[in-house]
């Protein structure tokens, strides 16, 4: 019914830092400053939040815990909500449901995150209805409050709560820009595509293919991204390159894998397809 996932990250997700984003995020978390992640599709924003959630759930240093192993911090609950254009405030806050004895209030994902002190990640936040901003504003300043209108309550955020939103400036239409009043409540961490070597490392880790193949895939990614704005709305994501890697790992010929995971996945424009195809055939034997 609602595009929300809620879980606790128990295993360390793989994340390859590209810059100082981990330190930044940690600092922001300690200071309870909401974070806005900017970057193109599939460059690892969600993975990053997952990773941070895991990492922040771990005791920061054993020394401060007196060397007694993992402290009380424990795994940190983590809530992701993929926003879409019909997502309303009550989808986030909660609603009454009916049951045999009348109505029952069910907390929405945001409310649960607020109550449990989780990291709440609103993916592609500009897609959501404008009324959600009513909720975001009091939560993201010094008040850290979530008003639940229907219950007549105001919930104060638990200590570990942090709101993280993501935003892809390239791909939304001009109509859906993030308003400044919202935007200026977050620090903004920019994500770009990783460098060729870093991306290759990620591909190898995620797909299991040889580093040599990964380097070629990363090269392909780099070349195809050169076509952005020239026939391609969006460059190829690391995620797609990983898919290609996985297919190769399962024995699909590299050219074919790149064709289905990159060329055809990216565009329907025949000319552009053909051009990407030529890049693919140049890179892979």
């Amino acid at each position: 019914m609602l595009a929300a996932e809620e879980f606790t990250v128990r295993e360390e997700p793989y994340y390859l830092p590209l810059g100082d984003e981990i330190e930044l995020f940690e600092a922001a978390f300690r200071q309870r400053i909401p974070v806005l992640l900017k970057g193109p599709t599939g460059c690892g924003k969600t993975r990053f939040v997952e990773y941070m959630s895991y990492r922040l759930g771990q005791p920061v240093t054993r020394i401060s815990q007196g060397g007694d192993g993992p402290g009380e911090a424990g795994p940190r609950p983590f809530v992701t909500v993929a926003c879409h254009e019909d997502l309303t405030a009550s989808d986030l806050v909660g609603r009454y449901l009916l049951d045999t004895d009348g109505t029952r209030w069910i907390d929405g994902p945001l409310t649960r995150a607020v109550k449990h002190g989780a990291i709440c990640y609103l993916d592609e936040v500009v897609e959501a209805r404008k009324d959600t901003t009513v909720l975001i504003h009091p939560l993201t300043d010094y008040r850290r409050l979530l008003p639940i209108e229907k219950l007549g309550q105001v919930v104060e955020a638990a200590d570990g709560f942090l709101l993280v939103i993501s935003y892809n400036p390239g791909y939304q239409s001009a109509l859906k820009d993030l308003k400044h009043s919202t935007r200026q409540r977050f620090i903004s961490v920019e994500f770009t595509y990783p460098s060729r070597e870093q991306e290759a490392e990620i591909i190898t880790h995620e797909s299991g293919v040889d580093m040599a193949v990964s380097i070629e895939l990363a090269k392909l990614g780099e070349k195809v991204r050169n076509l952005k704005e020239h026939g391609l709305g969006e460059g190829v994501s690391t995620r797609l390159l990983i898919y290609a890697g996985r297919l190769i790992e399962r024995g699909i010929a590299p050219r074919r894998a790149a064709q289905v995971a990159v060329t055809w996945a990216l565009t329907d424009d025949l000319d552009v397809q053909r051009s990407i195809e030529e890049v693919v055939t140049s890179i892979f034997e």
Binding site: N226, L227, V272, S275, I276, V279, S282
Partner: peptide
């Protein structure tokens, strides 16, 4: 046109 995009992809230039 195909080669133009191809060359653009390779070089990253217009």
């Amino acid at each position: 046109e195909v080669l133009r995009l191809y060359a653009k992809a390779l070089t990253g230039r217009d």
